[in-house]
Design a protein around this nucleic acid. Structure first.
Length: 244
RNA sequence: UACUUUAUG
């Protein structure tokens, strides 16, 4: 089962839905798909932008007597958040409650990310409060999603407050967090803060990754700072990234 | 170390 599911996962990532369905049928001849398998199928639909299909798989899974778990619901919420409507999203949430599955930190993070994409600051903050009420500890994803949202909205104060909260919560900012905040500072021409942050990052032992470098290059490129672009490229090479 | 959520393009 694991072998088949892994295979389905790979094919799903490659957006080869035809192959995915074929393998699924083959698999059923030999063994019984489990909750992982169905979750993988739903994921494959998401990548193929097929919202309706996802719902069909949920149906099939229930008919098979496989109980949807927290990952199933989180995946569905993500699908509807990205491709569907708010109404559908709420339906999934209701179904989740009915099934007696408690929302976890990923559920909340997904919702915050969803509202973030739609620049719905109020709603995102409401989710955050809901989270506190439910006694769910915010994690790095939560904070990063919020940073991203405030970044898009140009709400520097809020972003900094989020950063403080993150540190106070004992949550170590990761590469993504540093990249987000640096990007925000740069967009607002706060070059000194951005550079100070970059130093902090190194001091904290957080490694820049490919995204960090791309962001820096993009940012310097837009400002016409050719020399800076070059120095970033050198740093990249030193860090062992291959230029394309 | 089989499945879900965040940053650049």
């Amino acid at each position: 089962v694991i072998v088949y599911t892994t295979l389905l996962y790979v094919l799903g990532k490659a957006r080869d839905l035809k192959a995915v369905e074929f393998i699924f049928e083959e698999m059923k001849k030999e063994c019984r798909p489990n909750v992982y398998t169905y979750n993988t199928m739903i994921l494959a639909c998401r990548r193929a932008n097929m919202v309706g299909e996802a719902k069909i798989w949920l149906q099939k899974m229930k008919e098979d007597g496989v109980q949807p778990n927290i990952v199933t619901f989180n995946s569905l919420i993500d699908i509807y958040g990205k491709l569907g409507t708010v109404e559908e999203l709420k339906m999934v949430k209701r179904e989740m409650e009915v099934s007696g599955v408690q929302p976890d930190v990923v559920t909340f993070n997904t919702l915050i990310a969803f509202y973030g994409r739609h620049k719905m600051v109020e709603e995102a903050e409401a989710v955050q409060r809901e989270m506190e009420v439910a006694g769910v500890q915010a994690d790095i994803m939560t904070f990063n999603s919020l940073l991203s949202l405030y970044g898009k909205q140009g709400m520097v104060d809020k972003a900094e407050m989020t950063w403080e909260k993150m540190v106070m919560a004992g949550c170590k900012p990761d590469t993504t967090a540093f990249t987000l905040l640096m990007s925000l500072y740069k967009k607002h021409g706060m070059v000194e803060k951005a550079e100070a942050l970059q130093k902090n990052m190194l001091r904290a032992g957080v490694q820049p990754n490919i995204v960090t470098f791309n962001m820096l290059i993009d940012s310097y490129g837009k400002s016409g700072m050719v020399e800076k672009v070059k120095s970033v490229q050198e740093e990249m090479e030193m860090a062992g990234f291959v230029q394309e």
